[in-house]
């Protein structure tokens, strides 16, 4: 750990450029996985058999493929099919798709936890499927879904490091580049770990807040 603070001051600006990309990848894939997850979950609970089965199989396929393979596929295979993505685009798309499966299962559990009587009450005042979802089911499901959603955010922040495997110069890759050119492995990776931890802690506190709120009726 010799000269840690000196090294930290020197490498911090470069690592911060990695942090920026880490945040972009995390937020981008979080948004994408949320939208896709909602779509899969809605298909799943739509009551239309074909949609529900399609969604169930999609979720299983996505769950069954490692994130890193999904990333390689998007970045290295898609160009052969005529679709060229930048590394950043492929990273956001890959992580977004991979996590949409977990998001979908989480959302579905939240929706199915809502009392059947709520849905019947909505129907009895003439609400259709979508209005029932929007006005009655989803607002109540959000409370249930938020704590696990926060955990997914933390996992996505950390898994954004997998984007390094397809050349996205986020925090982990920047750290690796500095380490291999300076041989200061200990100091560099300690710094990288601390930076991930610093980003995770607010999220961990957020989850705790969500859990407290969900526990309160």
């Amino acid at each position: 750990m010799k000269g840690f603070w000196h090294d930290a001051a020197e490498f911090f600006p470069i690592l911060m450029s990695g942090v920026a990309l880490t945040i972009i990848v995390t937020i981008g894939s979080l948004l994408l996985s949320t939208v896709l997850g909602l779509i899969w979950a809605m298909m799943r609970v739509s009551g239309i058999k074909a949609l529900s089965m399609l969604s169930a199989s999609l979720i299983n396929v996505i769950r069954g493929i490692p994130i890193i393979v999904l990333l390689f596929y998007l970045y290295f295979v898609m160009p052969d099919l005529g679709v060229t993505l930048s590394a950043l685009q492929a990273a956001i798309l890959g992580l977004g798709i991979a996590y949409s499966a977990y998001q979908a299962e989480n959302f579905r559990a939240g929706i199915e936890a809502i009392d059947k009587g709520q849905i019947e009450a909505a129907q009895s005042i003439g609400m259709g499927w979508w209005l029932t979802m929007r006005r009655v089911v989803l607002p109540q499901a959000v409370r249930i879904v938020l704590p696990p959603y926060g955990n997914v955010m933390i996992m996505m922040l950390k898994d954004s490091s997998q984007a390094s495997t397809i050349t996205v110069a986020e925090l982990a890759l920047q750290g690796k580049l500095i380490a291999s050119s300076t041989f200061k492995n200990t100091n560099v990776f300690t710094l990288v770990a601390l930076m991930y931890l610093t980003m995770s802690i607010p999220l961990i506190l957020l989850v705790r807040h969500f859990e407290k709120r969900a526990g309160k009726k």
């Binding site: 009392d115 009587g117 709520q118 009450a121 129907q123 009895s124 005042i125 003439g126």
Partner: peptide, 15 residues
């Protein structure tokens, strides 16, 4: 359903 309302045993109000 807009012509025939319903009151349930367990109220089913929106909490």
């Amino acid at each position: 359903r807009t012509q025939v309302s319903m009151v349930f045993q367990r109220f089913n109000l929106f909490p």
